[in-house]
Design a protein around this nucleic acid. Structure first.
Lengths: 178, 178
DNA sequence: TGCCAAACTGACCGATCGGACAGTTTCTGA
DNA sequence: TCAGAAACTGTCCGATCGGTCAGTTTGGCA
């Protein structure tokens, strides 16, 4: 792994765990075993580091949500599975989007993520009627993101395979969303 | 409302929204229309302000979780309703506990909250068997906390009554947890 | 009215922050 | 081997941070 890649990985984990604003470049540097200046050699600024860290997830989310722009989610099951796969692969990023998105609107890359979250929420709001259905969607999105980032809290540290997690998550979300 | 009370309220909202570490005393002071020194007149330190902000929720959570220490939740329905009421009243605090708890273990008052979250999680882990059931619990807790703090995102800003929200949440969590 | 406590303030402190920049070291390819 | 680019570093900067402290203002009560 290159230094740049290691910094990206460490930054993502720290930004997700402690928050972007509360994570210092010095901390990221120490965790990577390099100087802070070295971090700034690879990334022009803290904001550029954030962009590099979460950029791929945003690009991917664009693709996953593309069906919504065409006016519908097409095959609901296929959409749900694609979204679950997205969650499984980008659980840290999604956790950041939903928990830190509202307070980091001044950061352009986060606002891109906020747009996507809004798009998803608006699609569901337009296609659901009752208070309960809207709440179910919020719980599904926030709950899945939180749960996937909290495996230790919930005794999910046994070596279950990704496939088992995926299958269970699809069942649960199907239950929740109908 | 006294200045002290206003500061508590503003601090809680800011700590929950932006994160404890990323919220400055100066910002809280500005939102309250007083000087930072005035904040420190009322609360000896940032940490004491945090304790004052989330202390009541922790005390209350102790009470709500008391049945678990007796080895069971007693009447499951009653426990669920008590917990939902707790969530509805302390949604900001709970959101802080679950999202910021893991990264603020050095703050004693947060660690008290972490203990309670662990207690709740361990109770469910001991009383559930499958991966799916454990995941359901994580999704229920994280999802409800997130959803209740994100009413604007999910088009829940209509003037639904607290009773309707409560009723729907109980139905959803009952579905989720069985 | 006057005293004292409560409430509030601005100036200051040392520490930390993101970032600039010149200097040093390492790597690569001819 | 050597030159130049890549990678890395330490020092420095201005800004912000939590907190200290002496001074000022306000409120309450005798």
């Amino acid at each position: 792994m290159t230094t740049r890649e290691e910094l990206r990985t460490i930054a993502l984990a720290e930004f997700a765990a402690a928050g972007y604003g509360a994570t210092s470049l010095q901390r990221i540097a120490e965790l990577a075993g390099v100087s802070k200046s070295s971090v700034l050699y690879h990334f022009d600024s803290k904001e550029h580091l954030l962009e590099a860290a979460i950029g791929p997830a945003i690009d991917r989310m664009h693709v996953v949500l593309a069906p919504l722009e065409a006016g519908g989610m097409g095959d609901q099951r296929a959409f749900l599975e694609a979204f679950v796969d997205f969650l499984l692969e980008y659980r840290l990023e999604v956790n950041m989007f939903i928990n830190q998105g509202p307070s980091l609107v001044d950061v352009p890359v986060i606002e891109r993520a906020n747009e996507l979250v809004r798009q998803l929420a608006e699609f569901f709001a337009a296609n659901t009627g009752s208070l309960e259905e809207k709440m179910r969607f919020g719980i599904a999105l926030g709950g899945a993101a939180y749960m996937l980032c909290s495996v230790q809290t919930f005794d999910l540290t046994q070596v279950e395979t990704l496939d088992e997690t995926r299958a269970a998550l699809i069942v649960i979300l199907t239950d929740l969303l109908g």
